[in-house]
Design a protein around this nucleic acid. Sequence first.
RNA 1: UCCCCGGUAGCUCAACUGGCAGAGUAGGUGACUGUUAAUCACUUGGUUGUUGGUUCGAAUCCAACCCGGGGAGCCA
Length: 431
Amino acid sequence: MTRTRVRDLAEATGAEVVLKGWLYNRRSSKKFHFLLLRDGSGIVQCVVNRDEFDEQQFTEIGKIPYESAIEICGIANSDDRAPGGVEIHANSVECLCIAEEYPISKQEHGPDFLLSHRHLWLRSRKQVALMHIRDEVIRTIRDEMHARGFTCIDAPIFTPTACEGTSTLFEVDYFEDEKAYLTQSGQLYMEAAAMALGDVYCLGPTFRAEKSKTRRHLTEFWMFEPEMAFADLDDVMSLIEGLLSRIVERVLEHCREELEVLERDIEKLEKVQSPFPRITYTEAVERMNAEGHSFEWGGDLGAPDESVISSWYDSPVLVHRYPEEVKAFYMKRDPQDSRLAMGVDVLAPEGYGEIIGGGQREDDLDSLVGRIQEHGLSEEDFRWYLDLRRYGSVPHGGFGLGVERTICWLSGVDHVRECVPFPRMLYRIYP
RNA sequence: UCCCCGGUAGCUCAACUGGCAGAGUAGGUGACUGUUAAUCACUUGGUUGUUGGUUCGAAUCCAACCCGGGGAGCCA
């Protein structure tokens, strides 16, 4: 008999099923054991009636340690008394592997303990829910980009130079005569790919050797980076809006239960509606100052400033046209105002901060060479990148979306470390 | 790198002004007529992060170090 997954039990009521999983919890009385079986797709209560088992068997079932691997055979019944509305009337309970005393209990644990037991913590209900949401977000991105005619192009992980010349990079000592680094962005490669295939994207890990210790930072995080040929800042913003609203829509549609397990305020997500607010950096600075949150034009927005701006709206807000000094060398200048860069950052609602950074790229060779010099970067390092402006340069742009930050916001959890299966952070690489 | 906070039982924490190191939970034993973090009774469990100092006496005060958490900067 093939096994049934817990998530499919609703269609199996009345039938005999075989379930395989782990013992999540047990409640017992004289006459019954209530076993909660967890199989990754869900949790179901299995009722073991003393009258239907022999004495020794019944006693042993009452002693199976938590997280032991078990196989239960029985009839699936709908029953209002069972959590989830379906329960199994067990005919047999087999212990496939007796677990040692399981370190993670139902009570709350501290972050240090949980992170050191991440390989086990992942089994917890909320963590399973988060991984389902992560899967939904990533799949939505791929589906949506495919539907929009984008081609998935993988960017390299080893790079010969900094992509942006800003963040601290991880140096890799392997390639002869040349330093190599772990990538901090696939963007420059996506620009090359866009000139080959039109609309492209990459989705993969990126690395930042910053000594950042906050709830929004990971040392290794996943980034989704689309890049479009023949596109300007408005096209970039339209894509952001379309994609983000689609992600919210799909998570609400397919991850209801997960959001409930996480005790997410679903109304807040339902309020996310396009069109998203768009505001220029200058407008944002003016409004902040008008409201008494003093901020001087020209500086980059810090975390507290971002919270103020996002608090004005229910949907993610697109802040665009920043002072060029605070943005990367490859950003195109605003033709209307050369002090501005054609960049856009997206701030998630509820104070979750920046989830996207992007914009229109500089497509003019001479301007780009000048910018590289101004930033003190080596022209030689960017020879190939400059080639893209020598051979059929066109207006183009794109953005980078922080996958974990996006999941963090959608799920309403308070730290990105829970949004990736095995987080890598400052001072933490185990397990 | 800087600022703040913390480290006591497997886990979550308490222990007032320096005076016998405790509770809940997990584990064990037993009870309980369908439990919902089940409940109830009993019970095992300690080098108080490390090193040194002050003191009759240190989990508590001091110093250094180690480990972790939150935040800033920087970023997605």
